[in-house]
């Protein structure tokens, strides 16, 4: 394999990783928004507010990730169907759901996204794409912090 071909494959891994990160972030934003609307119970105000802060942060991140793809001269994927196909994050059924189940579902969703983001961090390091790596490290930090908060809520001390 020529050096040029190897570099192209590695760059493709970065683009694919960014496309997955975009789809995961969009899917997670939609699930967090759903949780914000439908959560019920004694922790309603606390969770309703926390979920809002989270989906607003994710909305801003979607734009940042899409614009990084454009900076790499790649068109950004968009549209609900296209983005849903690009993510492994599952959707909650629309039915009465215990508040803790919303939190647990979001934990699982953040963990799926985080796993993919860690792969993208390695891929961008391999091709010395420090700008993508910087973006992804920032996203990883956000998701690790959110996971800490969500998991803390589920603890019963």
């Amino acid at each position: 394999m020529s050096t040029q071909t190897a570099t192209k494959q590695k760059t493709n891994a970065v683009v694919e990783g960014l496309q997955t990160l975009l789809a995961d972030t969009y899917a997670l934003m939609a699930q967090t928004h759903l949780a914000h609307w439908n959560v019920e119970g004694p922790n309603f105000f606390q969770l309703h507010t926390a979920f809002q802060a989270q989906y607003e942060e994710l909305f801003a991140a979607v734009d940042e990730i899409a614009e990084r793809l454009r900076a790499l001269d790649v068109l950004a994927p968009g549209g609900l169907k296209t983005l849903a196909k690009g993510s492994r994050i599952t959707e909650l059924a629309i039915e009465a759901t215990p508040a803790k189940d919303f939190v647990a579902h979001l934990v699982d969703s953040h963990e799926i996204l985080l796993g993919n983001a860690l792969t993208l961090r390695e891929a961008s390091e391999e091709v010395n794409d420090l700008e993508t790596q910087d973006l992804v490290i920032g996203r990883i930090q956000v998701h690790q912090k959110t996971l800490w908060m969500l998991k803390s809520f589920l603890k019963n001390l």
Binding site: K100, D101, A104, H105, V107, D108, K151, L154, N156
Partner: peptide
């Protein structure tokens, strides 16, 4: 479950 909600959810 009270102490281990996440694994029992999964």
């Amino acid at each position: 479950e009270e102490e281990q909600y996440l694994p029992f959810y999964r």
